[in-house]
Design a protein around this nucleic acid. Structure first.
Lengths: 144, 144
DNA sequence: TTGAAAATATTGAATATTCAACAATTGAAG
DNA sequence: CTTCAATTGTTGAATATTCAATATTTTCAA
């Protein structure tokens, strides 16, 4: 039985928040070299398959809710990193695509992100990292 | 070597963000029964040791930056859940204390949070949970 | 002791996020 | 077919967060 007087630092929710905050902070720091927030990197990465993705799909994939995504996409359209196309099969939908400029930026960002992953692998270990990833995936699965 | 064309879903930073989002959403849902955001529960929990904690200490402990914490504490003071006392030993500091009303609320919130942890234990498993906690702690350690 | 630098908390302006309402389109039941 | 509900995306107002600047107090070196 879980103890209700356990310190906050023993709660899974807290540990996740703390780890997420720290790793995200580090990633943010690297990506700031290109002046891009983490969410925009995620968007570019998802779109870099070249397919069109609807706003709803994208919002799910990049962990943003719809209005926030709309406004972030507005900025990225201004920066000509992505563009909108109305879905011909369902005109309620908007399909998002990555531009050539977006692809170039995405490549740079990817290598910055890989730097970070390699840094984690070094200090945290190969084995721990893959085990942690496995457990996180399974936690996410079991939450649906 | 980490692959730069790996899908976003394979990045540790993404898995952490996703898991954190999901677990936090669930916790939020429970705590909303008392109309309290997760951060306020954390604050109450940290303060429930009865000691005075400075704003800086608290900000670190509850994963908020200073101005955000100040404004959240303002609200909690209005709700008479906590109160400020100037530190007599260092008058730059403010010591935060939990009120009786805060203690009562904190108990209710604790049991809602414990509900959640037990729910996770059931669906995710005892073993996986403690292993995940261990790995998260160690990741956080190795990031400092 | 004094004066400059560091530490602590708060404030206000700028920015970002969220909630609720809306508009447009599609789906589907009668 | 027609109409009503559901889906999709955006907007604007309300709210929250962040950044930079400020005020206060302490520390510490000269």
């Amino acid at each position: 039985m879980a103890k209700s007087n356990a310190p906050i630092t023993e709660h899974l929710a807290y540990l996740l928040a703390q780890a997420n905050r720290e790793i995200n902070r580090q990633l943010e720091l690297r990506l700031s070299k290109e002046g891009v927030p983490v969410e925009q990197w995620r968007i570019l990465k998802v779109l870099s398959d070249g397919d069109g993705h609807s706003m709803g799909e994208l919002a799910d994939a990049v962990l943003l809710n719809h209005p926030t995504l709309t406004k972030m996409i507005d900025r990225m359209v201004s920066d000509t990193l992505v563009y909108r196309v109305q879905d011909p099969n369902d005109r309620r939908k908007v399909l998002m695509f990555i531009s050539d400029r977006g692809k170039v930026l995405c490549k740079k960002l990817n290598s910055l992100a890989v730097d970070q992953e390699e840094h984690i692998l070094e200090s945290y270990g190969d084995k721990s990292t893959s085990e942690l990833k496995r457990l996180l995936e399974s936690l996410i699965d079991s939450s649906n």
